[in-house]
Design a protein around this nucleic acid. Structure first.
Lengths: 132, 132
DNA sequence: GATCACGCAACTTACGCAGTTACTTTACAA
DNA sequence: TTGTAAAGTAACTGCGTAAGTTGCGTGATC
C-alpha cells in the first residue's frame, strides 16, 4: 500500500458497496480486493462505523454493510470520519517565544484552516453513489 | 523540531532577514536561533537559493542574505521553493485496474489540485515583509 | 459445540525526516 | 602561503508514524 492509504481504502470499499448495497462483505474479502490485510481493513472501517457510515456484524455470515443510503454518504463524511487530515497541520509549538514565529504561525494557521474548510465543502458535493 | 519543520524554519528565518535585509547570517547562527542544526539549515535554505530567494557566500565572512526585496518574496514563493506539499499528494497508483478506483482517483485528485491552487493563491497575498 | 466473523492488543517492519559526523571546497586575512 | 571561517555534501544514526502481522478473545449462527 501507499500513502493516503486509509482514505483510499475507505473510499474504494464504499464505492463498491454503493454499487451493491445489500451485499454483506467480510474484512477478508475486502482486504484481498484492496491488496491489504483484514486487520487493517477493520481498523479503517471501524472508524467509519463510529461515524455511522457502516455497520458490522460478528459471527457466522457477518461482515460489513452500509449504514445509510449511498447517496447520503458524502466524501466529506468519510474524510471527517478518519481523523487523518489531508491538510498538514501546522505543528503546535510549545511556546513561540519569538514574535516573528508568532506572527507566522497565526498567519499560516488561519490560511490552512480556511483551506481545510474549503476542502470539506467541496468534498461534501460528491456522494459515494457518484463514484460508483 | 516538529512537523512542517522545513517550511517553519524557512519562513522564520526569512522573517528575521526581512527585518534587517543587509545583515549576513551564518548557518550556525540561524541554526542556534531556530534550535536546530547548521546542516539542516543549509539543506532548507539551499532550496530557497535554487528559487532565487536567498544567496549564499562561502568562505570568511560568508553566509546567507536575501536575493530580493522582502516585499517581493511571497509565502507562495517559499512554499513552492520547498517541494514539500502541505496538501497530501494522492499516492500515484501503479495501475488502478479497478474502475471504481479510477473514478475515485480522478475525483479526489481534481479536488486536491483545486485546493492546492487555492492555497497558493492565498499564500501569494502575503510577503515576508508582512510578518516581519 | 464447531465454525466463522469481528474486536483488540502487542509486536514487527518499512519509511521518511531531523539530526549528526566528517570531510571537501572556497574565500579572505594575516 | 598558510590558517581560519564559512558553505557544500555524503553517509550514517535515531526517532516517530503507519502498515503489516500474529494471537487471542468475543459473539452469532449452524
Amino acid at each position: 500500500m501507499k500513502r493516503n492509504s486509509r482514505l483510499s481504502l475507505a473510499l474504494h470499499t464504499l464505492g463498491h458497496m454503493a454499487g451493491d448495497p445489500d451485499e454483506i462483505r467480510t474484512s477478508a474479502d475486502i482486504a484481498e480486493h484492496a491488496g491489504t490485510n483484514p486487520v487493517v481493513v477493520r481498523r479503517v472501517l471501524g472508524k467509519l462505523r463510529e461515524a455511522d457510515i457502516l455497520t458490522s456484524e460478528k459471527g457466522h455470515a457477518g461482515g460489513w454493510r452500509l449504514a445509510r443510503q449511498p447517496d447520503e454518504i458524502t466524501l466529506a463524511d468519510v474524510y471527517l470520519a478518519l481523523d487523518e487530515s489531508l491538510i498538514a497541520t501546522t505543528a503546535d509549538e510549545e511556546k513561540p517565544n519569538c514574535s516573528i514565529e508568532q506572527a507566522l504561525h497565526s498567519k499560516v494557521t488561519s490560511v490552512m484552516e480556511e483551506i481545510e474548510r474549503s476542502l470539506i465543502e467541496r468534498l461534501r458535493a460528491t456522494t459515494i453513489a457518484d463514484v460508483r
